[in-house]
Structure formats: C-alpha cells, structure tokens
C-alpha cells in the first residue's frame, strides 16, 4: 500500500534507528577493528566456509591467535592448541604418532596439520565434524586432549583480566559465550592458508619444475591424484588404502555405523607433507619414503580396499620413488611454515 519511495524511506529510517540505539556499543566499527579480506588464492576453488556470520577482522584474528597459543583453554591450564599443532610442522605435532593431552593422556589418532581449513567440508580423520566453527569443541572437551568443560572454560575467560576486553574489541561485547570463542578460533584458523609452495608457483606459471619433479608429478597424476585430487590434493572422500589393514580403528564406520566403512579414513591433503611425519591415521609409518614404499609394495587386499588401489601395490621403480619424493617435496610451503602472522 505504501508507495515504493515511502517504503524505502521507512526502511532507511529503521536502519538509522538501529545504529542510533546502539551508539555506545560501536567497538566493532571499521576504524577500531578493520575488516580483513580472507586469502583466497586465484588457483584455488571457492572456500566452503562463507564468513557471512563471522567476517574476519583484525582483532578477531588476533584474539583467535591468542586463544590458540593459550593453555588456559585446557582443564588444568597445561595444554594449548599449539601444544599439538606446531607451525614448524605445518601445524601437525612434532613427529609423534599420538599427541599428549592433559594428565599425560594420549590420543588415538595422529594429529593432522592445519592448513586451508576453510575449504574443508568436514573435519577429523573420520569426518565426524561438519563445520570449522564446531571443530574446536572436540579437542577442547576430549578427556585425552584439553579435557575442559565449556561452561567452566567460558567462566574462566569471563573472569580473566584481559579476555573480556579483547572479546569486546573483536565482537562488540565483553560477554563471552561459546559462539564467540569458536568464532575467534575460526578466524585465526581461516588465515592459515598455504598457497605459496613451488607447486603453487608452478600451477600459476611463475616457476618451472625440474625434470625429476615433472616425472614425479606425472606419476602422481596417474597413480595418486584419483584420491589426492586438485589443488588441495584431496577429494575429501573416505577410503580404505590397505596400508594399515590390521588397525583396530573403525575409522569412518565410527560415524556412519556402516560396516563397509570399516577402516576408511579421510584422504588427507598433502600440502607440506614433508613436514607432517609420521603418517596415516595412527602415525605408524615413520618417513615419507616409507609411505611411498608402502604404496609401492604394501597395499593389503582388505575386503573394502579402495578400487583405485591395486592389491599388492603400484610396484614403483627406484627412480620412480625418487621422482615421487621430489614432487611431494615441491608441496612444501616455506612461507606458510615461517609466516610471522601465525606466531604468538
């Protein structure tokens, strides 16, 4: 019934009023807390994470980083995210199969590296977690990891001399509740984009590969890229690779309760794979050369062995193994491993 102009005016006024009523709560305004554009490399697909509810800001990222390095997140104040996710190891743990949480307890799966998480449709080796914002709840509360109760943790943060002010600066309110804690951690994780390896520069036409690396890439494309596909080297599927056939871990079946998913795990990204030893869900394969050897001669004929994999193995020659290793080393992103923006 209103004329369009009047209607527009009404809504404009409405917006004005909202701003007007909240004038004393403007810590989130652009000057004090500038927005930060997420890093979306030109040769990457669109990220899965949308940022609509949680736009990156300078102070949100800084708060997420402070939390990431702060052992206050664990029940006894001894374990931080960084305790098991070290930048020098591409945010995997430091060469150990299983990480140590509070009270010396150990987990039962190898700590994955953290990079390019905003492209992940699901998290953990079994894909049980469906959203980057929700992922931290698992390590925060798992008794083998940080073992905290979220309500106690939020209370501790609320009573802390610094955190209420930091949350206010980042999100406009000093009231700390779990969504804001998870938003802050997500903001920091979202900045962990690895996109400057030799492989990336090769893809963008900025660098060339040696003959060895090129031969390795061809081998990889022909034998590995069915699963380790695309610029992130994973299709995010769950597969049985036959390398850890005797593992008692049910893998994807833990989530789906479907027997054919027994022992299936997510195809991991191979970015910085040279730095994330040991390998597989249980960290039972020590070196990258051992992984190549296992795929060459150690693929066991499990009932649900992935059809893309030959029972027995790919039977790579000695030269082929060297070439593959050279290619995998080209996935190392030194800039990511040394970037000061990720450091406390």
């Amino acid at each position: 019934m209103w004329k369009p102009f009047t209607r527009t005016l009404f809504w404009s006024l409405g917006i004005f009023l909202v701003i007007n009523c909240n004038r004393d709560d403007d810590a989130n305004s652009e000057d004090l807390n500038p927005a930060v554009n997420p890093t979306i490399p030109s040769h990457f697909p669109s990220p899965v994470y949308g940022f609509e509810n949680n736009p990156l800001t300078k102070k949100g990222i800084a708060l997420g980083k402070k939390l990431f390095y702060d052992p206050i997140l664990s029940a006894d104040g001894t374990v931080s995210c960084h305790s098991c996710h070290d930048q020098a190891f591409a945010f995997a743990d430091r060469g150990v199969a299983f990480s140590t949480g509070i009270n010396g307890k150990k987990g039962n799966r190898n700590t994955p590296g953290l990079a390019n998480l905003i492209w992940y449709p699901a998290f953990n080796w079994d894909g049980g977690i469906n959203h980057i914002e929700i992922q931290p709840v698992a390590p925060l509360t798992d008794s083998n990891e940080m073992g905290h109760n979220l309500k106690s943790l939020l209370k501790t943060l609320q009573n802390h001399p610094e955190y209420p002010g930091l949350f206010k600066a980042a999100f406009g309110s000093d009231s700390i509740y779990d969504q804001k804690l998870l938003f802050a951690l997500t903001q920091f994780m979202a900045t962990m984009v690895s996109h400057q390896s030799l492989y990336d520069r090769y893809l963008r036409g900025e660098s060339s590969f040696t003959d060895k690396q090129l031969r390795g890439k061809n081998l990889f494309d022909n034998h590995c890229a069915t699963c380790h596909s695309g610029v992130l080297q994973t299709d995010f599927s769950y597969r049985q690779n036959g390398l850890r056939a005797n593992s008692e871990d049910l893998g994807r079946m833990t989530i789906t309760n479907v027997f054919s998913d027994k022992g299936k795990f997510r195809v991991p990204s191979l970015r910085n794979v040279e730095k994330t030893a040991p390998y597989m869900h249980d960290g039972e394969i020590a070196q990258l050369t051992d992984v190549i050897e296992a795929y060459s001669t150690g693929i066991q004929a499990v009932f649900n062995l992935d059809p893309a994999l030959p029972s027995g193995g790919f039977r790579f020659s000695a030269t082929e193994k060297e070439d593959l290793l050279e290619f995998l080393r080209a996935l190392t992103d030194t800039n990511f491993l040394e970037n000061e923006a990720f450091q406390p």
């Binding site: 953990n124 977690i129 959203h131 929700i134 709840v137 509360t141 798992d142 309500k151 989530i255």
Partner: peptide, 8 residues
C-alpha cells in the same frame, strides 16, 4: 551439554 563433539 546437549551436543556431540565427535559426530556433529
């Protein structure tokens, strides 16, 4: 507390 952390 009405939330599964291991399978969202």
């Amino acid at each position: 507390g009405m939330f599964w952390s291991w399978t969202t």
